[in-house]
Design a protein around this nucleic acid. Structure first.
Lengths: 181, 181
DNA sequence: CCGATATACTCACTGAGTGACTAGCATTAT
DNA sequence: ATAATGCTAGTCACTCAGTGAGTATATCGG
């Protein structure tokens, strides 16, 4: 009955949606609105995709939805997270973000948002953790670049770009601390 | 018979695969190997995904594959691009890359690789075009940042990161010109 | 009363990406 | 000699990502 595998990567839009639902139960439409206003600079999903994800979260038992017979408005389903859903969300929230550029932009910022909202005292630790993680990652990339033959022009350019990107992230991360106070 | 829509975005792995096939016909396995060695720092797809894409390219008529009865080795299919496939690839190659971070890392570098390999004289134009495109994009992001209320903490952080990322790309782009000589 | 816009959601689809599986051949270790 | 390992070559069935068209009601200005 229940799906065998659940592939959803840590960057999946299912996590911000689940997190918002934990903060406040809602129906699909308003949930999507909250996502596009509160996290709109790094989460942009269509309304229908939001509904797709809600459907999946429900079949996995992470949320439950019930019809709300509010007279005068179109029928709508009110969703809230189950304990299982809360557990899933918190497990995600407490596992370190990847250090790829995309992971920082999307995964780390999302985790920072919810950490600030729910577990504010952990936020500064989250940032520090990410800084050391990125330093490590930067060294690895630099090492790979050293090993790459000089005639691998395009691959070298790609790595040099990643080095610059990671350095600029490391410049930016301390700025996140200003969001704490 | 033929599919109604073809959504494949400009960042789709179908383009590097198609491009490599145009350069040199091959069977799936060796094609995948070429991708992971020649473009491996920005294209990482699994073998089965490569086969998925080859299958799609074939049903769309962009490539054709025929069994190769080479005795002594397992049966394998030899693919080559059709004129329709070449047309599709070149249309993609000549439309400007997006200026998102991901588009630069993946789409622009891929286009640069094939431009250097096939139309070397266009490469410097490609780079200049991308530089002006990114300058424009940077101004747009900066404008959006100015308009964003100060209390939109997370969204502002996201935009500030994008500004830094775009600036570091603009530092990096001139370096690509060294690949020309 | 009419049309535009906002609310609220469904459906069918293409495309991205994974992981388990099959199978032949070659090399290496025992 | 043979058993184990690993490379070559590919298939299959699946989940997840994301789009676009379509449905239907409510609200509000003119």
């Amino acid at each position: 009955m229940s799906p065998k595998h659940t592939y959803a990567s840590r960057l999946s839009p299912e996590y911000p949606l689940l997190g918002l639902l934990i903060q406040q139960p809602a129906h699909g439409y308003s949930l999507h609105q909250r996502l596009t206003t509160d996290l709109g600079q790094f989460w942009r999903i269509s309304l229908s995709q939001a509904y797709n994800i809600l459907k999946r979260l429900e079949t996995h038992g992470f949320i439950i939805g019930q019809m709300q017979e509010h007279v005068g408005t179109p029928a709508r389903r009110h969703f809230e997270a189950t304990p299982k859903g809360v557990k899933r969300f918190e497990e995600w929230l407490f596992t370190p973000s990847g250090s790829s550029v995309r992971a920082i932009r999307v995964e780390f910022l999302t985790r920072l948002y919810f950490t600030l909202a729910i577990y504010k005292e952990r936020a500064s630790h989250l940032i520090d953790e990410q800084i050391t993680e990125n330093h490590k990652h930067l060294e690895i990339i630099k090492g790979a670049l050293d090993l790459l033959p000089l005639d691998q022009t395009i691959n070298r350019l790609a790595l040099e770009l990643r080095v610059r990107q990671l350095e600029s992230i490391l410049d930016w991360l301390p700025q996140c601390s200003t969001a704490l106070g």
